[in-house]
Simulated assay, not measured.
Amino acid sequence: MTRNLLVSAIAGVWMAMSAVSGARAQTIDPFENGWTLDPATSELRFMSIKKGNVAETNRFATISGLITEDGKAQIRILMDSVDTKVDLRNVRMRFLFFETFLHPEATITVQLDPEQLTDLHQTRHKMVTVDYTLSLHGVTVNKSAEVAVTLISNDRITVSATTPIAVTLAEHNLEEGRGKLQEAANVDIAPLGIVSFDFTFDRSSPGTPPDVSMLTAVAAAGDAALETKGNMDREACVGRFEILSRTGNIYFNTGSARLDAKSMPLLDKLHDVVDRCPDLDIEIGGHTDSDGSDVANQRLSERRAASVAEYLQSKGIPPARMKVVGYGEAQPLVANTSGDNKARNRRIEFSVIN
């Protein structure tokens, strides 16, 4: 009788301690209540190889994620948050490579199999192979990878890549961006990236599952850009105008000065840069290929540059800050010997004039 009373007392104390601490026993349901990513202790990295043997490891500063109660996991990466530790290198990655004004986020989606993880509360650590979907730069591919899942506590887990994951640039239509980066930085860059990650998730409280609206929320370009807010100094402004001149994302119909609607995402980013460089005046230079007469190309280049200036004026940039110049076909980047070369020569360039 005395022994039973002692056992009951110990059990009562344990239950009281559990109630105070909020602890709860791990069940065989690995997705109980769902999980939310802890961004402060999570990291997604990618390595690039340049000059043949120089490796650079970069990261994304803004990621979010969750695992629902039915085992659907998703990681969202805001591409503007690419972090190379160098301001203008970040800008090149955003505008020339990832084209974040068109593709502001990437997602990794996995449907987890509960049978793979039902004994996690006992093993505490498991290697599992998962099928995942990667949506990056407007292209979605299906892959598989081995990950390590570690139960740190009943309410905290880590998920890590066991080996680096290769992402082929051509598979995500990033080869053109690689070419722009190579030209801007004057270096050779390998045609793939090596990705690794360490994600930490916290279990949601009973009755308050993860916010599944995160799975469908629309990301806005520029929200996570790693740069100083407010006005920028001259070096930052000049560097950005040079980079924006290389994007090739300002479009006109053949022989026309009318801006195509698909130009607007980049022009809106251009407006943001001009607006944050209020002490600088800029030249907007129009260039054409060699098709047509010199006179016609000169007029067309002037009209196209003027269209860009008019758009910026409509967004609030004073006309006095913009000088419109047409260069016609006089300053080609490359010989006008192919369709691709001619497309490169048809461009709008931006430069600081004071």
Score class of each variant (00 low, 15 high):
103 H>C: 03
105 E>D: 15
105 E>H: 11
107 T>C: 11
107 T>A: 09
109 T>M: 04
112 L>N: 07
113 D>M: 02
115 E>F: 04
117 L>E: 03
119 D>T: 14
120 L>A: 02
122 Q>E: 13
126 K>P: 03
129 T>V: 09
130 V>E: 08
130 V>Y: 01
133 T>S: 13
134 L>M: 14
136 L>R: 04
137 H>Y: 12
137 H>S: 11
138 G>V: 05
139 V>E: 13
142 N>Y: 01
143 K>A: 12
144 S>D: 15
144 S>I: 06
146 E>M: 08
146 E>V: 10
146 E>N: 11
146 E>I: 06
148 A>G: 13
150 T>S: 08
151 L>D: 04
160 S>P: 00
160 S>R: 15
161 A>Y: 00
162 T>S: 14
164 P>D: 13
164 P>T: 12
166 A>C: 01
167 V>T: 07
168 T>F: 07
168 T>Q: 08
170 A>C: 02
171 E>I: 03
171 E>T: 14
174 L>N: 10
174 L>H: 11
176 E>M: 09
176 E>D: 15
177 G>I: 04
177 G>P: 12
181 L>P: 03
181 L>N: 05
182 Q>F: 05
187 V>T: 14
187 V>P: 00
187 V>C: 01
189 I>M: 10
192 L>D: 09
194 I>D: 02
194 I>Y: 01
197 F>D: 13
198 D>V: 09
200 T>M: 11
200 T>S: 08
200 T>R: 08
201 F>G: 07
203 R>S: 04
204 S>N: 15
204 S>D: 11
205 S>Q: 12
207 G>C: 05
209 P>G: 02
209 P>M: 03
211 D>A: 10
213 S>Q: 09
214 M>K: 10
215 L>A: 08
217 A>S: 13
222 G>M: 09
222 G>P: 09
223 D>A: 13
224 A>Y: 02
225 A>M: 12
226 L>T: 06
228 T>D: 11
231 N>D: 13
234 R>I: 06
